[in-house]
């Protein structure tokens, strides 16, 4: 069969998610954000939840998430997404409210809002992109930056005696009774993409079922910030990020 004969609608097995619009995403080539945006779009569509979905966008690279996924969005101030989501969800309990945050937003400036929303067991889902660096402002140290990792503000590598340790905030959140599901995923291979999608789906379902706060950390690459090619970034992530941030469920307690 010729490719033209195969490319018929009845044979289509994968295409751009319906909720992801045609606006070209501003992310750098190879950025993990794009893959996660696709997954969020697919999950909301598959759940038939676009009419109840409210996303809360962060400050950071994903600040324009609302430009790409055709649902209702609120753009929060830096770090405040969990508080904004709390307000939206408490007043609209039937809605699917989720935040989409990076490591600086969630684990540095927004630590208090993150921990307290999770500790109250707010029925929201938190999508947490951990690429160990501040992408949007040009590659500075994040709370999750690895020891020895070179960034714009740790040009000789992160020194724990000066800058403290990489913050495993998902482990911390998993300790809180308010969280029902805390998982760490990645999107660097087809298999990991499928698993990350299932995790996002579970988190969204938890939110609607009222089980408490769900956190899906996606260990991600920032090839511009890391100054590597996208493919090389994936290798570096597997070699250096995964030992510090191992993939898998940290907590799965949705039967409460």
């Amino acid at each position: 069969m010729k490719p033209e004969d195969i490319k018929r609608s009845e044979n289509k097995v994968y295409c751009k998610p319906e909720l992801l619009n045609d606006t070209p995403m501003h992310y750098c080539p190879g950025c993990s954000h794009g893959v996660v945006h696709k997954l969020v779009s697919e999950v909301i569509k598959e759940m038939g939840a676009e009419h109840i979905a409210i996303g809360v966008a962060p400050v950071g690279c994903a600040v324009f998430a609302y430009s790409y996924i055709d649902i209702d969005w609120i753009e929060a101030a830096h770090g405040r997404a969990p508080a904004v989501a709390t307000g939206a969800k408490r007043l609209n309990p039937s809605r699917l409210v989720f935040t989409y945050q990076g490591d600086g937003d969630l684990a540095a400036i927004g630590t208090a809002e993150t921990i307290h929303a999770a500790n109250r067991g707010e029925n929201i889902a938190i999508i947490f992109i951990n690429n160990a660096i501040y992408g949007m402002t040009g590659g500075q140290m994040a709370p999750t930056t690895l020891e020895g990792q070179v960034t714009a503000t740790t040009p000789y590598g992160r020194r724990v005696d000066l800058n403290g340790y990489p913050l495993k905030i998902s482990n911390l959140l998993a300790q809180l009774p308010g969280t029902c599901y805390v998982t760490r995923q990645a999107v660097h291979t087809p298999a990991s993409v499928r698993k990350a999608k299932a995790a996002i789906r579970k988190a969204f379902e938890n939110s609607l079922a009222g089980h408490g706060t769900s956190v899906v950390e996606i260990v991600s690459t920032c090839n511009s910030g890391w100054k590597m090619s996208p493919a090389k970034s994936n290798e570096w992530m597997v070699e250096h990020m995964f030992p510090e941030y191992p993939l898998g469920d940290l907590k799965n307690d949705t039967e409460r």
Partner: peptide, 26 residues
């Protein structure tokens, strides 16, 4: 009516921002 004691004034006002975004009187 929802009443919630937040963890800080920073959180309070952002909860107001989130709630008000949905058209509610907050």
């Amino acid at each position: 009516m929802v009443v919630l004691q937040a963890e800080s004034e920073v959180a309070s006002i952002n909860m107001v921002y989130g709630g008000a975004s949905t058209g509610k009187a907050v």
